[in-house]
């Protein structure tokens, strides 16, 4: 079974938010809510300053506290690509998954269910790339199977210096930021 993940090149990302707009359009994300967003991390003291721009979203972790705590099984690991999804018709809106996510990647949809990034699985199953990846004007985002050593995303992670987000939270996130 494939294990989808992403590599995002922070040397290329300019924080244009095209990925954010594409996601909202593709997935009809309600106003005032975001499935993906831009974080800018500034390190150091002038003149030795380093700026890292990160396009963030659900990390589709290998160790999924959101799936473990869900009392109804609405939050689940999808058979295609081990993507973490929420079945809207099973979610009771208890918000345990929101509280259990160290990335605060989930939110309550106005219709009452927990919502988050799906890696655009409906597009991926049709052989397309996730909307955010496909529109990126600097081509800084790479999507693919982490279990396939020959995939572009695996080769980039193996060859470039990178870091995931909050590895200390112990969730084994599957989005890697190339630095």
């Amino acid at each position: 079974m494939a294990r989808f993940g992403m590599a995002i090149d922070t040397k290329k990302c300019v924080g244009c938010m095209d990925c954010v707009v594409a996601c909202k359009t593709e997935n009809n994300v309600p106003e005032g809510h975001n499935r993906d967003w831009i974080v800018t991390v500034a390190n150091g003291k002038f003149p030795n300053v380093n700026l890292e721009i990160q396009s963030q979203r659900c990390n589709h972790c290998d160790n999924t506290p959101c799936v473990a705590c869900c009392p109804t099984g609405a939050s689940h690991v999808h058979e295609v690509g081990a993507v973490v999804l929420v079945d809207h018709n099973m979610c009771i809106g208890c918000k345990a998954c929101l509280a259990s996510c160290p990335y605060d990647a989930r939110f309550v949809h106005p219709d009452g269910y927990a919502d988050k990034c799906t890696f655009c699985i409906h597009r991926v199953e049709e052989g397309k790339l996730p909307a955010c990846v496909s529109v990126c004007p600097t081509h800084c985002m790479y999507f693919g199977d982490l279990d396939d050593a020959n995939s572009e995303v695996s080769r980039l992670i193996a060859s470039r210096k990178n870091h995931p987000l909050l590895p200390e939270a112990g969730t084994s996130p599957r989005i890697f930021y190339l630095i």
Partner: peptide
Amino acid sequence: MQELTTTRHNPQIDPFMQVWG
């Protein structure tokens, strides 16, 4: 110094979580 800015402003999540009242 480390400074972090985010464009995310999800209700009940940002600036800090308050999903349970």
